[in-house]
């Protein structure tokens, strides 16, 4: 019978995604309760060198497929290889981080096993020797808890929610090289353009500073970017300012944008429309800065600051800088 958890480790340009290590850590915590070993799967070009990073988390086994053909992500080649590894590992559960790549890949792979998949998990619990997965539904206005009844099931985990904990000690995992099957790719990536001005990726940032109408105009992004720089934060935006053309859609947080769960979310001049809250309400600490004391964002805020964003934000940046320098 299938047992244990296989974790798909995503890498891009030779770097393992932090969210994948979070998924791996969660798998190790849960495998203790549902039984079986945890294995990791990594594929790409030059990924052998990355296994050292995975070893720190102490899975029992690492499946590694090295191929120049896997240098660029393509749905079909990755699906072929990952399916091959899953057949070998025969796990009861497959975990992956809920990233752009996984959203494209994992449902397709799950389908090959006629298996259920729950995406964007924010909590995983154990009941009756199986996993129960909780995910936000209806734009985070509700949560749904789901249970599986299948020999193999897939879960994708929301980045920044589960702790990544390297193992303090442990044995050396077995590394098994899996040869890539003959690959047939009908849709492939020809170019990648990094978005302009994106310094830290929103969905994985531990601090997000977001701007809305209250910043008064696109010429004032610098004020927020400066705070981002001193905090090591990613820059977000409300739908209103994206629709107004003040900033690229890549930065939008909310229902038709990105979902973020940082440790700290600073909403600057954002009133807090339902569709914005859908993208950030699971943030651990929320700071709202708005001159309208009745803005709905204050209902969610851990710390509420009523005032002018353009006046207060530079002072916050100065204060953080002053403390960092001392």
């Amino acid at each position: 019978m299938a047992q244990g958890i296989l974790v798909f480790i995503e890498q891009r340009n030779g770097r393992i995604r932090k969210a994948s290590l979070e998924a791996l850590s969660e798998a190790i915590r849960k495998a203790k309760l549902v039984g079986g070993d945890v294995s990791a799967a990594i594929l790409g070009d030059g990924v052998q060198a990355l296994t050292a990073e995975i070893v720190k988390y102490n899975p029992a086994k690492i499946y590694c497929t090295e191929s120049a053909e896997l240098k660029e992500y393509a749905t079909e080649s990755y699906a072929d290889v990952l399916s091959e590894i899953i057949k070998k590992a025969d796990p009861r559960f497959v975990f992956a981080a809920n990233t752009a790549l996984s959203r494209d890949l994992i449902p397709r792979v799950a389908t090959r096993f006629d298996a259920p998949c729950i995406s964007d998990a924010v909590d995983i619990s154990v009941n009756d020797n199986s996993l129960e997965v909780t995910k936000p539904i209806y734009s985070a206005k509700a949560s749904g808890k789901f249970a599986f009844n299948n020999p193999i099931s897939f879960v994708t985990l929301r980045p920044n929610v589960f702790a990544a904990e390297p193992a303090s000690n442990g044995s050396q995992p077995v590394i098994e090289n899996v040869a890539a099957p003959p690959l047939n790719v009908r849709a492939k990536v020809t170019e990648t353009h990094a978005a302009t001005g994106t310094k830290i990726e929103l969905s994985e940032a531990s601090i997000v500073v977001s701007g809305g109408r209250g910043i008064k105009g696109p010429e004032n992004w610098g004020v927020l970017q400066n705070l981002c720089d001193v905090l090591g934060a990613a820059l977000g935006a409300s739908r209103a300012v994206v629709d107004a053309g003040w900033i690229d859609h890549q930065h939008q947080v909310g229902q038709t944008g990105k979902t973020v769960s940082p440790q700290l979310y600073i909403a600057c001049g954002i009133s807090g429309a339902m569709q914005h809250l859908a993208g950030m309400s699971s943030s651990k600490v929320i700071v709202a800065i708005n001159k309208d004391a009745d803005a709905p964002i204050f209902k969610l805020a851990t710390y509420s600051v009523v005032g002018d964003v353009l006046e207060i934000v530079p002072k916050i940046a100065e204060e953080v800088k002053r403390i960092n320098e001392n």
Binding site: P116, K141, A142, G144, K145, F146, A147, F148, S153, K299
Partner: peptide
Amino acid sequence: AKVRIVEFSLPPSR
């Protein structure tokens, strides 16, 4: 039959 809804709930209020 492969996946079952355990329950839906409202998120805890902050």
